[in-house]
Nucleic acid binder design. Structure first.
Lengths: 392, 392
DNA sequence: TTAAAATGTTCCCGCAGAGAACATATACCC
DNA sequence: GGGTATATGTTCTCTGCGGGAACATTTTAA
């Protein structure tokens, strides 16, 4: 026993509460909330499902499912359709589908453009607006554009009900989900984008790093759908963004800066990086170098090997089920798929010969909007009866 | 929307169940189980606590706490003592403490010795047996010794009730928690230690990597007590073991091989490592090099800088609340604390100037036994009424 | 047309926690 | 030493929620 926990003394002020953050006392209505959450989550990720399927998936009783679905319908979150022709024996089961007028707003300010989308609860991007900008936008620019675009969308699609807004920002976002601590390419430092958005829209807002949002989208509806442990690397003009999903949860870190794999050291004698260190991945393998090597096979192969080394390094740290590559890293992988696979196999630490699974991201232009919307939907999925919807 | 989830079709066989592993339908008795778990978990980590404290911590009603504690007492897991003198106004609250005759067995086979301990539910090592060996033991040796040692301990302390056994092994352990896939220093490959132990003892067994077990112990009762995100590096004769706690959960990875930071690339032109790669941390910074540099300040400082580089690398990947160092890495850190801190600050990616928190592990010789026991206690803490205790 | 199968609906039961009312045990004040 | 305030343990009742049986509904198959 350690010095601080032994003996027979009673500790009136224990650290137990900290350990019990997820283990609070549970009341009966927590059960109800949990089950409502299970159902809306199931139709969110799984699309339209029959009541019978929900009964099997959850293990709950038919009658309970009936009551829960009725409550979700009264909350305006799902609708029940008559069954399609199934060809099966027995009374056809009602189809539960998420309503397509429940949306989240998703904002993506970047160096050359600002984008806003309205994303339905099933992941469909119902509408989007984009404006190109000559100079990196300020947070005020982003909020002003978001407001205008939202008015337009509201006029175009009447009757939308909004649960909240999410924003994907190319930079470091604090753990509070509102403050952009540093977005060098935008020139933002300690900008409280979340509060600005929340004040403008009167909605709950979640701000996050763009790579995290991208991985979230790919996990929900893309190449990493439902995979438990994923490492994500995305190459863009502003460098390499990284994110990781560990045991089904986003790696956030103590301050929210976790997953910055672009600054993992990949060559100890490499060039100096903007972060002050030497040989960071995003310095050794960036868009400029890739362009320069486009017609120089050995140089191109060397870059592919660098990618493989990064993957191998991440593989021994995370042992992921899947390594997901986006942006120019996805393109590089597709162009030298065999070489990358072979080099990873050579370098990989894994004792079983089985190859590391590598895939390319595939949601494309909607990825960040979908990911930001996912963040905004999260509270609704957790407590369907506790989150108000407001008219857009 | 993606190609696979759009449209209006009904998916009878959705992937929803996979997403709902932790979101299964919940019955009322789940609530009871959860609350029992909360209480036993609280006294496990927090030591003796008053009923009043438990009431505040959980938010449950006094009467509910009374019933729950009574049930835990009937299960033989806790005892209630009369209050000590508190000096406070009001009726003194009963003290709930874990019973000290509920134990887990903890086994630690290593290259030069085998060790077995009986660890009480409050983390106290009640008894331990150790035998030195000339050659690395086989799994059979380990099980045979464990059996003998357990018989001795049973004779020494009568009346012990055992919940299960845990084993900490210096090597890679599969995600199933029973198979040692590769323990090079022991010469073990694909050895099913878990089943061998379970067959011998008739108990549930959890086998794990020694670094994971060590971090678990430090998190429960040591330097990382209750910290949410921790990166752990432990230097021993058999190399550098690594482990990470992410959001309060152990980083395991898809196959159970996560956290192998000893094979993180730290010098791209470094020496060849036993794993086949070059410049792995445990090759650049091992016990031999440390011994050789003991009386050579510049060389010693260089090793400290290597440690700092490793910490900085892990810091930008995980953004941990704490970096925990054990074994010779802890000693190295203590010897060059200022240098390591300064180099980490130089290299650190974090935008806020705040230093990365670094600490030395402190549980010492009992660490692995405590960690292995923690793993064995985990099912009991999760479902106190569902795990049988057997006489030792 | 009838039987079988699967699902929706209704009603009742049991379990678990909340809360009120009461009992008990301490400290503080006079 | 006695009375009061305060905090906690105990008992009893109430409510909410899921399970399950019985019945109703809707389909396919014979």
């Amino acid at each position: 026993m350690t010095d601080e926990a032994g003996g027979t003394g009673v500790r009136e002020h224990s650290d137990a509460p900290a350990r019990m953050a997820a283990a609070r006392g549970s009341r009966n209505d927590h059960t109800r909330r949990h089950n409502l959450s299970s159902l809306i989550t199931a139709v969110h990720y799984g699309g339209p499902l029959t009541r019978a399927q929900l009964t099997r998936d959850t293990g709950l009783n038919r009658s309970t499912i009936g009551g829960l679905v009725t409550e979700l319908a009264e909350l305006g979150l799902v609708v029940e359709d008559a069954a399609a022709e199934t060809g099966a024996v027995g009374r056809p089961s009602l189809i539960v589908r998420p309503r397509d007028d429940v949306v989240a707003l998703a904002l993506h300010p970047d160096v050359d453009a600002i984008e806003l989308g309205a994303v339905a609860i099933d992941g469909t991007v119902l509408a989007r607006r984009r404006v190109s900008v000559d100079a990196p936008p300020t947070a005020h620019d982003a909020v002003a554009f978001a407001w205008e675009a939202a008015r337009e969308i509201a006029a175009e699609i009447p009757g939308l009900r909004v649960v909240g807004a999410g924003a994907a920002v190319p930079g470091l976002v604090a753990i509070d989900g509102t403050t952009v601590v540093a977005a060098p390419h935008l020139g933002w430092h300690d900008v409280d984008l979340g509060s600005a958005l929340a004040d403008a829209f009167g909605l709950p807002v979640a701000v996050g790093n763009d790579a995290n949002m991208g991985l979230r989208a790919e996990w929900s509806f893309g190449s990493a759908r439902g995979v438990d442990t994923v490492v994500y690397l995305n190459g863009s003009a502003s460098g390499i963004g990284g994110a990781a999903l560990v045991g089904g949860r986003m790696l956030r870190g103590g301050r929210g800066y976790g997953g910055e794999f672009g600054h993992m050291m990949i060559r100890s004698d490499g060039e100096r990086c903007s972060c002050g260190r030497h040989g960071c991945l995003e310095t050794e393998l960036n868009a400029d170098r890739l362009d320069a090597a486009a017609h120089d096979a050995p140089a191109f192969d060397a870059l592919a090997s660098t990618l493989a080394a990064a993957i191998a390094n991440l593989e021994c740290a995370f042992d992921p089920d899947l390594v997901l590559l986006g942006g120019y890293l996805g393109a590089l992988y597709d162009a030298r798929r065999d070489l990358v696979t072979e080099r990873v196999r050579e370098l990989a630490f894994r004792p079983d010969a089985e190859d590391v699974a590598i895939a390319r991201a595939r949601l494309g232009g909607n990825r960040l909007l979908i990911g930001a919307a996912e963040r905004a939907f999260a509270p609704l999925l957790e407590d369907p009866a506790g989150v108000p919807l407001v008219a857009l």
